[in-house]
Design a protein around this nucleic acid. Structure first.
Lengths: 213, 213
DNA sequence: GAATAATCTAGACATCGTCTAGTTTGGAGG
DNA sequence: CCTCCAAACTAGACGATGTCTAGATTATTC
């Protein structure tokens, strides 16, 4: 083929190139628009090449999803550190950081929950998910004053926190709210709205430790 | 073909048969598993037949999605009526009804937000969505004592309510919580957890007229 | 420097959505 | 009752996709 004339038979770092191609496809056109053949085309290799590095389509997208999840966890952790020492400030910063990521990369986020496209049982993915919840529960322990088990997520406060963040992001991304706001204004408006909402939730957490667990 | 021997050339009510087939496919195997050809197979017609009634794949799934959305709205409205006159009771009943539907039919729910599979701008779909938010805002007006505009969704309380419900359902369906609970026990456990969570949220609404609900 | 493993190509196959041309049937108007 | 038209349906084709297989090319190791 012509397009491959200017490279050697062996690509060199095809694995990374395919992941990058996949990321741009998913980010621009959504997870459903991704095809192995298009990724191969963008990397300048034949349609069969990806199989050698990732096995199949699911394998490639699973690695991409793990990459994305870890990026998100790190962004949230940074925001938490930057928020100072006050637990409630940290919690809110985490919430805003999550929402900011989710509405900034809706398609990448969407990939991470698609059972038919990725392997949700992949160790790297489970690990990233665990890091995410553990970090939140740690913060939540400080806020409520209770010593919550980082390996157990099932207390009402923690569940509420995750639900609010994910639900809000979904509402923005699915255009359930802010439907008519121009695109360049949406992130700002969404974050402002998230701010108001999280303040409201904060009142619930303030009362949480008065009741039994 | 053999399977079509026992019916006339004209099916009679192919449109309904295809919608029913589509529903069972989506419900059992998820929206991604749906194919026009399989739906046609289940209805006992050729693979080209669906086009005449729905145009294309998106057309069929869009009609199915509208059907599902309307079912959900009606279930929630029933629950609200059954909850009595107390606004806070009504609000909680709505939340539980939403969550109950969402975790009972995760795949059907999933279909309703898939941009690549359905036409989110379809009038019937938009109408169902509007009915859903309007009903909630009505209830929310009674709870907060404020006269909220049913055509505007953007006040913190309402946003929080929708976010919590959708977020919680997503957490259950995506196995972020209750991952190791056996399937037959999950709905019960999930609803109990939803109950606790919604009680917590109730405090955030600052209901002055709340009386030991 | 040769043997072996890794990497990549190229073609095949089944399946999918959609298009087109042709066949069957129900029903309206005479 | 008959004719004729439009709606309903069939059947084959096309391009695209994921995956498999056999073979070609290159890196690496001994």
């Amino acid at each position: 083929m012509n397009q491959m004339a200017d490279r050697t038979y062996h690509h060199g770092d095809l694995k990374a190139a395919l992941l990058a191609a996949a990321r741009s496809i998913v980010e621009e056109e959504g997870a459903d628009a991704f095809t192995l053949r298009e990724a191969a085309r963008r990397a300048g290799v034949s349609h069969g090449a990806p199989a050698h590095h990732f096995g199949d389509k699911t394998g490639l997208l699973t690695q991409l999803a793990a990459q994305i999840m870890n990026e998100r966890v790190e962004l949230v952790e940074s925001a938490k550190v930057a928020a100072g020492m006050e637990p409630m400030d940290q919690l809110k910063a985490c919430g805003i950081a999550h929402i900011n990521f989710l509405i900034s990369h809706p398609h990448l986020e969407g990939l991470c929950w698609r059972d038919n496209l990725i392997n949700r049982s992949d160790p790297a993915l489970l690990d990233a998910l665990h890091r995410m919840t553990a970090g939140l529960i740690e913060t939540m322990s400080a806020v409520t004053g209770k010593d919550l088990d980082p390996d157990k997520e099932a207390n009402p406060s923690t569940v509420l926190a995750i639900a609010v963040v994910h639900g809000f992001a979904q509402m923005v991304n699915e255009r359930i709210i802010l439907r008519d706001v121009p695109d360049d204004e949406r992130p700002f408006r969404a974050l402002a709205m998230a701010n108001d909402m999280l303040d409201l939730v904060g009142e619930a957490f303030g009362t949480a430790d008065r009741q039994g667990a």
